[in-house]
Nucleic acid binder design. Structure first.
Length: 494
RNA sequence: AGGCCGUUAGCUCAGUCGGUAGAGCACUUGACUUUUAAUCAAGGGGUCCCGGGUUCGAAUCCCGGACGGCCUACCA
């Protein structure tokens, strides 16, 4: 086999591989019984204890007749020490042929060096995986933004805080499930491939179901299926999984994102408020150990009770107490004076909502339940009994971003049909008839809530970009055109 | 989709006025049995993103393109 276009580093690593193989070290080993992870070995450290450990070689310090190296396995870094008079000349020489990035297993005894570092003195070692490509630079880490996302594995090796953040994400997701299950909610799974994409307003991804000869849509929300389960007698359900929206990429948008939706029959928006506050503060204290998260501009104080204020109050505070009594022309003028772009065809509630989104929402740093939104904005919620122009909902805003909507769910199928038709306009196709049919069988009154899990994690981990809480964020596909070759293209040829 | 900025060694980055490529880490060779950004000595490594133009001469200036970042727009 030849390696056309291989670079010098790769050639040297191949030479080291052959040298190791010649010394009896097979480059890609099998299972290796470890006493524990590097972190566990550090925790259970005892002078003179015999252990077996494994990890990736991060650094080496060749002292001639002995070599120090640091290994990492994601849990910790741990030093190992190879001495000629213990390993024998040949195995020490082989150890010196290791490249940074190689994965080894080692057995030996634990000791503490003169400088106080806990270390394994190696009596026997094996090669578990040869690295043919180099690691990122050892103390600047991996900075290139694209490489960090495209080759996340390198980011995880080189940048320990990234590894820690994804550990936190995993624990937070588990705690969401624990918190809800302990309170009697049942986790369910509903279709991600749907004949029509409902439950939210967003452009869907279209896909093709060949067996049925029809177009299908990746879900933009699970809501309409979860409500069918309320009809079917599941009183307390939740779904925690991916939604897909065919919209642009940005600092706070990824086309697939993780959504929690929770429904509780015989409850309303107020129960959801309690649940949201309880769940999020539970995550902050159990996973992150504190209620004040983030730093600088990202600092957020989650200490309950959280502020509650109506949408109208917020708007009046921002653009004048007379706002809701203004004639259209005057409202338009005032919005323009505040730097907003307001198209001629917009209705009054649209102008108001532009004010809310552009001027108000981002100023709400600490958790705030914004209540009594205009009914036009929320077609799936019940109207407030004392004012049918607004709905009985909240939007939980944290860190200037909408994190969780909560509704008293609309369970009147006749009203629901009207609201759908107003929203759908001419396009009658968009009304989900099967959902309405389910609701006509009687849906219990219910409270419902959704939490954008990625955005919540941004707040809890104090990062600005949704990409920093998603392991493999969406990127443009890499060009495969010829020219730039670093080995893999040629090797694939048959 | 629009605007601004960027792309130089495997990685992190310099590169002056347009004069033909630099550092640290990584790599190779040698020395060193408690080092830890090991140290010391020597060496190798470049499609300066791609294509075109200006020029005696382009990493550098101009035009076009690709890719990336940031901001704006749609959206959660």
């Amino acid at each position: 086999m030849t390696f056309q276009g291989e670079n010098e580093i790769r050639a040297q690593r191949m030479a080291n591989l052959e040298a190791l193989r010649a010394a009896g070290f097979e480059p890609w080993g099998g299972a290796f019984a470890r006493t524990g992870s590097l972190a566990e070995i550090r925790t259970a450290f005892e002078e003179g204890r015999a252990v077996a450990l494994a990890g990736r070689v991060l650094t080496t310090r060749d002292m001639g007749k002995s070599v120090f190296a640091h290994l990492t396995d994601g849990s910790d870094r741990f030093q190992v020490y190879a001495r000629g008079n213990i390993l024998g000349e040949e195995h020490l020489a082989a150890f010196k042929r290791l490249d940074l990035g190689d994965i080894i297993g080692a057995e030996g005894t634990l000791f503490t060096t003169r400088t106080g570092e806990k270390t394994l003195q190696i009596s026997r070692w094996v090669l578990l995986a040869k690295a043919l490509r180099p690691l990122p630079e050892k103390w600047h880490g991996l900075r290139d933004v694209e490489a960090r996302y495209r080759q996340r594995y390198l980011d995880l090796i080189a940048n320990p805080e990234v590894r820690a953040r994804f550990d936190q994400r995993s624990r937070a997701v588990r705690e969401i499930r624990n918190y809800l299950c302990e309170r009697g909610f049942l986790e369910v799974e509903t279709p991600m491939i749907q004949p029509q994409a409902g439950g939210a307003a967003a452009r869907p991804f279209v896909t093709r179901y060949e067996a049925l000869n029809t177009d299908m849509y990746l879900r933009i929300a699970p809501e309409l299926y979860l409500k069918r389960l309320l009809v079917g007698g599941f009183d307390k359900v939740f779904e925690l999984n991916r939604n897909f929206r065919n919209e642009g990429l940005s600092r706070s948008h990824n086309p697939e994102f993780t959504m929690l939706e929770v429904y509780e029959a015989y409850a309303d928006m107020r129960a959801m408020k309690t649940l949201a506050e309880g769940l999020i503060t539970h995550l902050a204290s159990t996973v992150f150990g504190r209620l004040v998260v983030g730093e600088g501009d990202n600092r957020v104080d989650l200490t309950p009770p959280w502020r509650e204020i109506t949408y109208r109050e917020l708007v009046r505070d921002a653009v004048g107490p007379d706002w809701f009594d203004l004639p259209m022309a005057e409202a338009r003028r005032r919005a323009a004076a505040l730097g907003l772009t307001v198209p001629e065809e917009w209705a009054f509630w649209q102008i108001t909502h532009e004010v809310y989104e552009k001027l108000i929402e981002r100023t709400l740093r600490d958790p705030t339940f914004v209540t009594r939104l205009p009914a036009e904005l929320v077609p799936l919620a019940k109207r407030c009994p004392d004012d049918p122009s607004v709905v009985d909902v909240f939007e939980l805003v944290i860190g200037g971003r909408e994190i969780a909507p909560g509704y008293s769910e609309l369970n009147d199928p006749l009203e629901q049909r009207k609201r759908f038709e107003e929203q759908a306009g001419e396009d009658v196709q968009k009304v989900d008839e099967e959902f309405l049919e389910a609701m006509e069988h009687g849906m219990p009154p219910a409270g419902g809530m959704g939490i954008g899990v990625d955005r919540l994690l941004m707040i809890l981990t104090g990062v600005d970009a949704i990409r920093d809480v998603i392991l493999f964020p969406q990127l443009k596909p890499r060009e495969r055109a010829g020219g730039r070759v670093d080995g893999e293209e040629e090797m694939a040829a048959t």
